[in-house]
Write a protein that binds this DNA or RNA. Structure first.
Lengths: 161, 161
DNA sequence: CCAACATACATGATGAGTCATGCATTCTCC
DNA sequence: GGAGAATGCATGACTCATCATGTATGTTGG
């Protein structure tokens, strides 16, 4: 039962480099955002989604689809952002179970203030370091991985198949 | 002052794909490890470091260098792992301030039990999806990014220069 | 020798993510 | 039309990560 195919030297090297990159890059981007504008990366993503739609408001389940977050994570996170005045909630007339998450003026200000610095950081720490060709290839790889990630979601729900 | 160079369509697409990949991949790997062996990815990394050295013990600052974690994160994390019996602490005779973090038998068992499944998941969800060539290119990109990340660490410590 | 500073590490408070669970409301189907 | 299931969302408990700060030991210059 121990036919484990361990990683060879090249694989290890690449995997470790990738892991370090993503962990360090996230840390740096998060810190930049946090200290320059008081937003977390998560806050930023939420606000991006809300500014993406003209009405500036979304149903939680719609936001969840876009962010691909767990439902309870979203719920908690929105609660905190609401306490900070970045978003608000409105009832949904069409479905009494549902609600809307709305961008507040303060939320809009916050992301508009944060965006230039964040984009600049992404550019400086990541995009500018790679050639356009490399970036395109990376994008391709990411999509490959994502696709195969989507195929067998929990990988154990097919027992009854 | 608003000469922000926003991302063009290709850049956005690649950046978003990369972000989604890393976030989703981490989530999947973390869940696999957690549910199959009760370890978090962080636990796993710590145990890897400890098993990497023959003596099975490291000074905290040494572990910190390897993991590139914040010092307080390491301290808290080791505390929790200690409570779970995965590691222990020993005093350091040469430096009374210092200590050693030692791998316990339970810790060794835990990682030995976890490793095959984790490696298999990394392979299935990531390595197997890419060609060897893609993997090598990705590793190269990661190292480029890491290197440029190291160059200007806090990016503001040079004000007195 | 001792004051000032650095190093090694711990701790408390707080924001964040996950799991399990709860609870309305809506849907389905006999 | 009413029971049972599904949907939309919230909440509490717990684990984590980070920040600020504390404490003890070591080091160095006068």
């Amino acid at each position: 039962m121990d036919g484990t195919r361990w990683l060879d030297a090249e694989e290890q090297r690449a995997w470790r480099a990738y892991q370090q990159m993503q962990s360090r890059l996230n840390a740096r981007l998060g810190r930049q955002l946090q200290s320059d504008s008081g937003l977390s990366l998560a806050d930023y993503e939420v606000l991006v989604c809300l500014t993406d739609v003209a009405e500036g408001r979304l149903r939680p389940y719609e936001l969840q689809r876009r962010l691909e977050w767990e439902q309870s994570r979203l719920s908690h996170h929105i609660g905190r952002m609401q306490r900070r005045g970045l978003v608000g909630r409105e009832g949904c007339p069409e479905d009494a179970r549902g609600s809307f998450i709305v961008l507040t003026p303060a939320g809009r200000e916050a992301i508009e203030a944060a965006a230039p610095g964040h984009v600049e950081a992404v550019r400086r720490l990541f995009l500018d370091v790679l050639t356009r060709e490399q970036l395109m290839m990376l994008g391709g790889m990411a999509r490959q991985v994502l696709q195969s990630l989507q195929a067998p979601p929990p990988a154990a729900a097919r027992n009854a198949g």
